[in-house]
Design a protein around this nucleic acid. Structure first.
Length: 430
DNA sequence: CGAGATGATTCGGC
DNA sequence: GCCGAATCATCTCG
């Protein structure tokens, strides 16, 4: 009777169990057939245990373990515990996977930090490089490998931390499990309860894991922004690319708006993206328009260049006594327009300086003279251009009076405002 | 190191 | 969605 109550209190106290662990005292009372007034007594004793010295507690523990009623009480407690634990399990078991962890996992997988070693990482790096739209030249390669190296570094840190975490988690779990198994000899701990405890530990550790994943994601984001911020990693196009673009620009000065196909072709030729081609033309148009004078020399250079190309093609064609085919030019597959437009550009792009009297002044840079001479020789040899070479006049023309190309979307129908009598519009030479 | 060049971005207009 | 214009950020060169 009284012994049993004390023993119950003693067992509970010595095992470090709370009221929740031993179940409702009321139900205990019912099962043990104790009157209600004893509950206060029990609680009193439970509270008193904490005040006992270690020796006293040990002595009490020993007394309890040796008590003849211990096995019976132990089984009763186990029964109560089982019911309690089951009810708790029923509530807590089905917690869904944390969406935050899932998001982080997906992101790490996409970034190539988690998942298979090679594929993910290089795929992400490739995607990054593609997104950056940088020129895939030597510099691009360096950047690419740099990005990959840094990503690999993050990946390595992540995995080593994850390993540490897993190790710590399993060590702690083992420790707790051993402890509980040990304690299950003196207090009622079912395997299910151990499982539950393990789950609790894992939940606690997974919050640490989430922090690790979160900081890894942040590191990857910072890395990406550093490498992918286009302004940050701006690289000048290589010389050949700029030349190709300039060639197209000046040979289509009447309408420097490449079609989608032309952009694609230029992009391919220059090993840049279509949007970079668009950017380039956008910048070029605006800068050319803003300061035509500054671009005169460049315009002459490309005009001469393309004209020479076109003329040599034409010469070859006439030598072969057959018409020139559109794509036979050395200057590229858009050379059909070159042939006419380029020679026309030569005519049209000589620096025009209007003197005080409004007369056009031909102004050829000395550095261009040899090329111009060559052009003259070649063009004299070829039919159709001789007349043109005598009427060379620069007209930054394609721009109308409002300094716009807008009205020149049909170049062949447009005449250049400043063109004096005798001048030939470039586009008509086609 | 500073000025100019250059590629990219942003924003408003159409 | 493309364009012009303004602007930013970086590169290049003297």
């Amino acid at each position: 009777m009284d012994d049993q109550t004390r023993m119950l209190a003693g067992l509970a106290g010595l095992g470090g169990l709370s009221q929740g662990d031993v179940g409702d005292p009321d139900s205990v009372r019912k099962q043990l057939g104790q009157p209600q007034q004893d509950i206060g007594d029990i609680l009193q004793q439970i509270m008193a245990i904490t005040d006992e010295s270690l020796d006293e507690a040990q002595a009490r523990k020993h007394a309890l373990n040796c008590h003849r009623m211990k096995p019976a009480l132990f089984s009763v407690l186990c029964e109560i515990k089982e019911k309690t634990v089951l009810s708790i399990r029923g509530i807590q078991d089905e917690d869904p996977p944390d969406p935050q962890i899932m998001r982080l996992d997906n992101m790490l997988l996409a970034e190539g930090v988690s998942g298979p070693e090679k594929g993910g990482g290089s795929a992400a790096a490739a995607a990054a490089a593609a997104a950056a739209g940088g020129s895939p030249g030597a510099d691009g390669g360096i950047e690419h490998s740099d990005y990959r190296a840094k990503l690999a570094q993050i990946r390595q840190i992540y995995h080593s931390e994850l390993e540490k975490y897993e190790q710590a988690c399993s060590e702690f779990t083992n420790h707790v499990m051993n402890l509980l198994r040990e304690q299950s000899r003196t207090r009622p701990i079912s395997p299910k309860e151990i499982e539950r405890m393990v789950a609790i530990i894992h939940r606690k550790f997974s919050s640490i894991q989430m922090q690790l994943k979160q900081s890894t994601c942040e590191a990857v984001m910072i890395l990406r922004s550093r490498f992918l911020d286009a302004r940050r990693k701006r690289r000048n196009f290589n010389k050949q690319a700029t030349e190709v673009l300039n060639e197209y620009f000046y040979s289509h000065l009447s309408n420097p708006y490449p079609s989608e196909e032309a952009k694609e072709e230029l992009a391919k030729k220059c090993a840049i993206t279509v949007s970079q081609v668009s950017n380039w033309f956008g910048n070029k148009r605006i800068r050319y328009k803003k300061n035509i004078g500054k671009f005169q020399e460049e315009a002459n250079l490309y005009a001469v260049k393309t004209a020479v190309d076109a003329a040599s093609v034409s010469a070859q064609a006439s030598q072969a006594n057959s018409p020139a085919t559109p794509n036979s030019g050395s200057s590229g597959s858009y050379s059909l327009s070159h042939a006419g437009d380029a020679a026309a550009a030569y005519l049209g792009l000589h620096p025009l300086n209007l003197n005080g009297a409004g007369e056009a002044v031909l102004n050829i840079s000395p550095s261009l003279q040899p090329q111009v001479d060559t052009l003259h020789r070649v063009t004299r040899l070829t039919a159709g251009y001789e007349e043109l070479t005598t009427s060379a006049l620069y007209a930054p023309h394609r721009l109308d009076t409002s300094n716009s190309w807008q009205d020149n979307t049909h170049p062949s129908c447009v005449t250049s405002p400043p063109a004096p009598p005798g001048s030939v519009h470039s586009d008509t030479s086609n």
